[in-house]
Protein backbone atom coordinates (compact mmCIF):
# COMPACT_ATOMS: atom_id res chain seq x y z
CA UNK A 1 0.00 0.00 0.00
CA UNK A 2 1.17 3.54 -0.67
CA UNK A 3 0.10 6.69 1.07
CA UNK A 4 0.43 10.08 -0.63
CA UNK A 5 -0.84 13.57 0.15
CA UNK A 6 -3.01 15.13 -2.54
CA UNK A 7 -4.02 18.76 -2.18
CA UNK A 8 -3.29 18.58 1.51
CA UNK A 9 -5.27 15.39 2.25
CA UNK A 10 -3.90 11.87 2.75
CA UNK A 11 -4.91 9.26 0.15
CA UNK A 12 -4.24 5.52 0.19
CA UNK A 13 -3.78 3.25 -2.80
CA UNK A 14 -3.61 -0.54 -2.40
CA UNK A 15 -1.46 -1.05 -5.53
CA UNK A 16 1.52 0.81 -7.01
CA UNK A 17 0.16 3.61 -9.16
CA UNK A 18 1.57 6.09 -11.69
CA UNK A 19 0.34 9.62 -12.31
CA UNK A 20 -1.69 8.66 -15.38
CA UNK A 21 -3.55 6.01 -13.35
CA UNK A 22 -4.02 8.50 -10.53
CA UNK A 23 -5.73 10.93 -12.92
CA UNK A 24 -8.18 8.20 -13.90
CA UNK A 25 -8.64 7.11 -10.30
CA UNK A 26 -9.52 10.66 -9.23
CA UNK A 27 -11.97 11.08 -12.10
CA UNK A 28 -9.92 13.89 -13.59
CA UNK A 29 -9.47 12.43 -17.04
CA UNK A 30 -10.33 14.98 -19.73
CA UNK A 31 -10.07 17.86 -17.29
CA UNK A 32 -7.49 20.55 -17.85
CA UNK A 33 -5.24 20.12 -14.83
CA UNK A 34 -1.62 20.56 -13.85
CA UNK A 35 0.22 18.44 -11.31
CA UNK A 36 3.12 19.22 -9.04
CA UNK A 37 4.92 16.39 -7.23
CA UNK A 38 7.20 17.21 -4.30
CA UNK A 39 7.59 20.76 -5.58
CA UNK A 40 8.29 19.87 -9.22
CA UNK A 41 5.95 19.98 -12.19
CA UNK A 42 4.99 16.62 -13.67
CA UNK A 43 4.59 17.36 -17.39
CA UNK A 44 1.56 15.72 -19.01
CA UNK A 45 3.91 13.76 -21.26
CA UNK A 46 5.43 12.17 -18.15
CA UNK A 47 2.19 11.01 -16.47
CA UNK A 48 2.74 7.39 -17.52
CA UNK A 49 6.39 7.37 -16.55
CA UNK A 50 6.12 8.83 -13.06
CA UNK A 51 5.24 6.29 -10.38
CA UNK A 52 4.04 7.51 -7.00
CA UNK A 53 5.87 6.48 -3.85
CA UNK A 54 4.72 6.73 -0.26
CA UNK A 55 5.19 10.18 1.17
CA UNK A 56 4.74 12.01 -2.14
CA UNK A 57 3.20 15.44 -1.86
CA UNK A 58 0.96 16.22 -4.83
CA UNK A 59 -0.80 19.38 -5.86
CA UNK A 60 -3.43 19.12 -8.58
CA UNK A 61 -4.74 22.45 -9.86
CA UNK A 62 -7.22 23.93 -12.31
CA UNK A 63 -7.88 27.43 -13.62
CA UNK A 64 -10.76 29.18 -11.88
CA UNK A 65 -12.27 32.66 -12.00
CA UNK A 66 -10.06 35.26 -10.38
CA UNK A 67 -8.82 38.79 -10.64
Amino acid sequence: MIEVTINGAAQHFPQPINVAQLVVELNLLGKRIAIERNGDIVPRSQFEAVALVSGDQLEIVVAVGGG
Binding site: N7, N27, I33, V64, G65
Partner: peptide, 13 residues
Protein backbone atom coordinates in the same frame (compact mmCIF):
# COMPACT_ATOMS: atom_id res chain seq x y z
CA UNK B 1 -6.98 36.96 -15.55
CA UNK B 2 -7.58 33.57 -13.97
CA UNK B 3 -6.62 32.08 -10.63
CA UNK B 4 -4.94 28.70 -10.10
CA UNK B 5 -6.53 26.58 -7.39
CA UNK B 6 -6.56 23.02 -6.10
CA UNK B 7 -9.11 20.92 -7.92
CA UNK B 8 -11.95 19.38 -5.93
CA UNK B 9 -11.08 15.72 -5.82
CA UNK B 10 -14.07 13.59 -6.71
CA UNK B 11 -15.76 16.33 -8.69
CA UNK B 12 -17.56 15.35 -11.88
CA UNK B 13 -15.08 15.90 -14.73
Amino acid sequence: TVAIRRTNIGQDA
